[in-house]
Amino acid sequence: MLNDSDLSALFITLKLAVITTIILLIIGTPLAWWLARSRLRFKFLIEAVIALPLVLPPTVLGFYLLIALGPNGPIGGALQSLGGQPLAFTFTGLIIGSVFYSMPFVVQPLQSAFSAIGERPLEVAATLRASPLDRFFTVVVPLARPGFLTASVLGFAHTIGEFGVVLMIGGNIPGQTQVLSIAIYDHVEALEYSQAHWLSGGLLLLSFIMLMTVYALNRRFSLRNVSGIS
């Protein structure tokens, strides 16, 4: 069945996905809110940048991140001159890569959920004495719950499934940066099909259960009026 290195790959994968999802919700929520509300003319530029990982081969993203985070890159070099370590081939580097890679999967569901709410519920809340922050947490967040659920699950599942970015910037260091998808690849390369089956089957089942849960829950939510007022 699973050996120690498989288990540590599973643990690293889950840890990576959880941390990435949390970071993405924290930075993705204000970003999606801004994208949903802003009437700025250059908004489309930022939308396009965020959507890039959807179309770009992950190796391209990984390649550029590797250069940026490596000892000679702008970020890695800056860190090194400050006495830190370059981020390439570290778990932190993996997280940075995953955040970029999974960003559209978190930002886009949130943005469309925020857009669907529209201006009116916020105006209603304002006339009922709620400050902007109060309005966000007591009106927008509850009304955008399906969006938050979709964003979290897609961000999480997509991070679990990444391969190219991880391989480029994380390398394949067992116990540090080796994640499930790469462990599967290694097993197949070594013709260890039974272990590859265990890991692949497990991943397939996990992904299916997560998506099923999202769609089932969102179906229940969507019976409600999307605009948030009636």
């Binding site: 009116r120 209603v124 009106v139 009304l143 948030g228 007022i229």
Partner: peptide, 14 residues
């Protein structure tokens, strides 16, 4: 300190 009644329905569905 004002009350506002909107033209269309405006109750929070949540």
């Amino acid at each position: 300190s004002l009350g506002y009644v909107f033209q269309e329905p405006s109750l929070f569905t949540h």
